[in-house]
Simulated scan of single mutants.
Amino acid sequence: MSSPLRPARVGAFGAAAILTVILAGCATAAPTPAPSASPQSDPVFATEEEALAAAEEAYAEYLALGAEVASDGGENAERMAAVTTGAALDQERQTFAGMRERDQTGTGQQEFDSFTLQNHDADGSVTAYLCLDISGTDLLDSNLQPVSPPDRIERYPLEVQFETAPDGKLVVSQSRSWSGENFC
Rank of each mutant, 00 (worst) to 15 (best):
P4I: 15
P7E: 15
V10S: 00
A12S: 14
A12E: 04
A16R: 07
A17I: 03
T20E: 08
V21Y: 07
V21Q: 13
I22D: 13
L23N: 14
L23E: 13
G25W: 03
A27C: 14
T28H: 12
A29R: 09
P31D: 03
P31R: 01
T32C: 03
T32G: 03
P33F: 09
P33G: 02
A34Y: 04
A34R: 06
S38F: 13
S41K: 09
D42R: 09
P43T: 10
P43Y: 09
V44F: 08
F45W: 10
E48T: 13
A51D: 08
L52Y: 08
A53G: 11
E56Y: 09
E57D: 14
A58T: 05
A58W: 04
A60C: 03
E61P: 03
Y62T: 09
Y62I: 00
L65P: 08
L65G: 05
A67H: 07
A67T: 04
E68Q: 12
V69F: 10
S71K: 07
D72V: 04
G73C: 06
N76H: 13
N76L: 05
R79W: 10
M80K: 06
A82Q: 12
T84G: 02
G86I: 00
A87N: 06
A87G: 06
A88N: 01
D90W: 02
E92W: 05
Q94L: 01
Q94F: 00
Q94A: 07
Q94N: 03
T95H: 02
T95I: 08
F96D: 01
G98C: 07
M99K: 08
E101R: 11
R102L: 15
R102F: 08
Q104L: 05
S114D: 08
L117T: 01
Q118I: 08
N119P: 03
H120W: 13
D121C: 04
D121H: 02
D123H: 01
G124I: 08
G124Q: 01
C131E: 05
C131N: 11
C131V: 03
L132Y: 05
L132G: 02
D133I: 00
G136W: 09
T137M: 15
D138L: 10
L139Y: 02
L140E: 06
S142K: 11
N143L: 15
N143T: 13
L144K: 14
S148P: 00
S148G: 01
P149M: 10
D151A: 15
R152G: 04
R152W: 10
I153N: 11
P157L: 14
P157Q: 14
V160T: 14
Q161E: 13
E163I: 07
E163F: 10
E163W: 04
K169P: 01
L170I: 00
L170N: 01
V171T: 05
S173Y: 09
R176V: 10
R176Q: 15
R176M: 15
R176K: 11
S179R: 12
E181N: 09
E181M: 07
